[in-house]
Amino acid sequence: MAEYAILLDTRFCTGCNTCFYKCVQENRLHDVAANGNTRTLVYINDKGMYHHRCMHCLDPVCVANCPKQALTKSEYGPVLWDESLCIKCQTCVEVCPFHIPMFDETQKKIVKCSMCAHRNFAENKDAVPACVEACPTGALTFGERKAIVEQAQKLAADFKLHIYGLEENGGTSLLILTKEDPAAVGYPEVEKKAAAGGGGKSPAVIGGAVAGGAAVVAAAYVGLKKYAERRNQVENDDKK
């Protein structure tokens, strides 16, 4: 199965938030959106349009830290959330370096983009996420991640744009092109790493496909690494 990604070219984003409202309707999120909890929302900031939405990391911190595997990274791109497994601990809300998952107190739900996985674009080649379908200017495009990366790199080179998401947290399945420094626009400054090999499949997916031993090693590595990072962070916090 191909791995998919979204490209957001903020040059053509007008902040109209049609993507936001389409997402609300597509996923029937009216109540949580009214509470301020959204899967995607565009902030009209001084230096450009900041889209608050899941980056669908290749190596998602939320997935690695979710104690119940309620969050998983699918092999075709989106990071998905299973309400039935979620214990509402909000670990994902705390650990996401992009500050994306939101917790709706009234419905006790994690609110985070699913890349419209229900549209079945993995099997239906004409299907795209609802936001991509609705964007009036075509600022959002959708396709196989490899092609999206190539498109982003070409546009960045041709028009001197920044690419956000290529290296942030080891790469993501949402790539964002900005004219200004992404940090100035409002995108969080996230540690840059080399892209994860193999597209950053979730432990669950890997477990289903290869011998579990490799996954255990991977999981242990990720866990230890996160633990070390967090310890360093806490130590740094304590020093402040």
């Binding site: 299973d82 699913s114 079945n120 997916v205 477990g207």
Partner: peptide, 17 residues
């Protein structure tokens, strides 16, 4: 630890699919 490997979803089985 290996429990998480058993929750793989066949494509289309995930609630968000």
């Amino acid at each position: 630890p290996l429990r998480n490997l058993s929750v793989a979803y066949a494509f289309g089985d995930h609630p968000q699919e």
